[in-house]
Every structure is written in structure tokens, then in C-alpha cells.
Design a protein around this nucleic acid. Structure first.
Lengths: 196, 196
DNA sequence: GTCTATAGTGCGATAGAC
DNA sequence: GTCTATCGCACTATAGAC
């Protein structure tokens, strides 16, 4: 926690995971989705991978590092969506690409995304994480009209929460992916005040 | 977990908490909001109350019972909102009361609600909890036009997720309550296709 | 209703063989 | 890169005094 050489925890451009690390992250995310972040032990992650706890320490030095790497990996997916949208030739197409990308991501990762974003530990991590705020700002530029003030922040947070939260909501968790996707797209547009 | 006489766990109309139990629940919710459900130990709850762990066992027999009681207590708040809305004289006023009630609840409970609803353990609990589905159905009747099919479920889930998720989103967590409330109200109306 | 004390289990983390 | 074995600690839960 307070190890002086563990700068990587607060480094904001870090740690492209190796293939082995990526497998650890996948197992961790899978377990987070079932038991929550705080409810996931190293033993669960190791069992998911079919190895022992000790093997995990070859990839990461502490449990906290695994949690952090998993959070960053999910953030990287969002950043990929943002980058693809920013590459669109017009503002309008960029916005459409961002909406579709976020919805697709939420559907594809269904049970994974929601349990991360809303976990208090992860939220606290992201709160002081420059890269997270950078990605959110880029999404805001893509999705919310300029000059919206603090209300623009609320609008973006609400849209992200709506999409990532809806897919894990107990009331909808059994619903078919395609019905969910179509409705999320429709509602995201309505939410942003866009006609379809 | 499998105790044959522990019917209360799956009883759907249970357990109005005593005053002492309510204090335990409050402490638990407070800790859930900071450390997550899975990251909260009996020791943390006991410390919050200034008692020992053993004292908690006088009120509840297991940790799971405390988690369950806390989830039900929050659900009861939502039900209160639904009941107040249903008592309104017209359909339109009922809908307005429901929207305002949910937004007020989310703001008032800020960090509490979101960490509960999105926790995988709680979600799994609610998924098979008749009372939860009953309350959601009542909200649906209040907020979503009749005959919307499965899309109506998505619409309600998304609205609830948006409101409860937005207030805890790391991007907005420091924002002033009143700005947040006004924007949530505005966006909830837009989301439901209502003019303001 | 709250305490101390403790049983039994699982946790995160490390050492050292292969 | 993964293993076995282990340390020290925190956890849930219980027993019994006050």
C-alpha cells in the first residue's frame, strides 16, 4: 500500500499486460462479476485459472495490483471506443460511433462492466486516476454538446451509468441481448436529445 | 446457508427491524458504501457502532442475514416512494411523484444505493426475491406506459440504473447535490419522453 | 445486551524446490 | 513459471461471564 517503490500503482500510463497477465485479469474480472471485487480472493482467481495462488505472484506482487490492472484493462476498452469514434470524419458520425461503441461494449461485457464501475474501491481508485478522467473527458467531448457546464458532467455520468448499470440490473439480467441492445441504442439517443 | 429453519432468508414479507437492528443496518450500509458488500467485515460494522462483533450476533445470526436485511431496508425505501406515488389522485401526478421520489432518494442516499444495487451478490439475491420484482413492477406501472413489452423492462432498468448509478459515478461524485438533483430530474423526464 | 475468549477456517504473502 | 509448504493474521461464529 505504501511501498515507496510501487510507483506503478499511481502511474497513469502504465502496464500493457503480458499474455500471462491478461489471463489473470480475465479470471479476476470473471470472479469480480460473480462475487464482487471485495468478495474475490486470490484463491478464486487461481482456481479459475487452474493454478495455485503462488503462481499469481509471479505476475503481480499484490492483490491490489491485480485489482488495479483489471480496472485499467476495462478502462482501456472504453478508450479504444473513444479513439475509434474520434477517428470518424464528422462530429455527427463520431457521436454515433461513440454511442454504438459504448452500448456494444456494455452488452459484450454484460456482467463485467457494471460490477467494476460501481464498486466503491474501484470508484475511489478512478476518482484520482488521471487516465480515467481523460477518457471521460473525451467521451464528454464526443457525446455532450460543448459549453454544458457541470450539467454536462451529470449528463455523461448518467448515460454511462444507465448503459452499464442497465445490463446488470436484476430486473433485466435475463433479457435477450438483441432486445437489450436495440432498446439501449434507442434510449441513449433519446437521452442525448437526438432524433433517430 | 442451508439451515432448514432459517426460512426468514427467503421469506418475502419479513422482518421489520427493531431499533437495535436498524442501527446495525445503518452501520452496515455505511460500510458497504465505503468498502463494498464483499469488502465489509463484521468487525467494520461493529467498529462503526462502537461495539464488539459478538454484540452483532445478538441481533442477527449470520453475516448473510445482515446483508440481506440491509438490502431489504433499502428496498423498503423504494417501496415507500412507490406507495406515496400510487396514492396520488391522477396518473400524471403519480408519475411525477414517482420520478421525484426516486431522484430524491438517490440524492439523499447518494453513496449508499449504488453500491448495493450493482453488487453481484445483492443482484443475485434480488433476482429471486419476489418482493423486489413486485416493487419494480409497481414502479414500471407508475413510470412506463402500458403495453411496452420487454422493452418496458429495459426502460425502467435503465432509468433506475441511470439515477442510482449517476450519483456515485466517480466523474460526478464531488458535484453539488442541487445541481445533480435538477439535472437528474430534467434527464429523467427527457428519458421517459415527457415534456417539462 | 454487551463483553472476553477462543475455535476453526481462509486470507494475503513469502520461501525455496523443480 | 508453477509447485508445496508455511507464516501470521483476520475472518465468521460460538460459549459463557456479567
Amino acid at each position: 500500500m505504501s511501498a515507496p517503490d510501487a510507483a506503478s500503482i499511481h502511474d497513469d500510463r502504465p502496464a500493457i499486460p503480458t499474455a500471462a497477465q491478461a489471463r489473470v485479469i480475465d479470471a479476476a474480472l470473471c470472479s469480480f462479476a460473480r462475487h464482487g471485487v471485495g468478495g474475490t480472493s486470490l484463491q478464486m482467481i487461481a482456481d479459475e485459472l487452474g493454478v495455485t495462488k503462488a503462481a499469481l505472484y509471479f505476475q503481480y506482487r499484490t492483490r491490489d495490483e491485480i485489482v488495479f490492472a483489471a480496472a485499467e484493462a476495462e478502462l482501456a476498452r472504453v478508450e479504444t471506443v473513444a479513439a475509434a469514434a474520434e477517428a470518424q470524419p464528422s462530429k455527427r458520425r463520431a457521436r454515433e460511433a461513440a454511442i454504438r461503441g459504448i452500448v456494444d461494449l456494455a452488452i459484450e461485457r454484460r456482467r463485467t462492466v457494471g460490477s467494476l464501475l460501481s464498486d466503491p474501491v474501484i470508484a475511489g481508485l478512478f476518482r484520482e486516476h488521471e487516465h480515467f478522467h481523460d477518457v471521460m473527458q473525451r467521451l464528454r467531448d464526443l457525446l455532450v454538446e460543448p459549453g454544458a457546464g457541470p450539467e454536462g458532467d451529470v449528463r455523461l455520468a448518467m448515460l454511462v451509468a444507465a448503459i452499464s448499470g442497465a445490463v446488470t440490473h436484476p430486473y433485466v439480467v435475463d433479457l435477450d441481448d438483441e432486445i437489450l441492445r436495440a432498446e439501449l441504442l434507442r434510449l441513449a439517443h433519446r437521452f442525448l436529445g437526438l432524433r433517430r
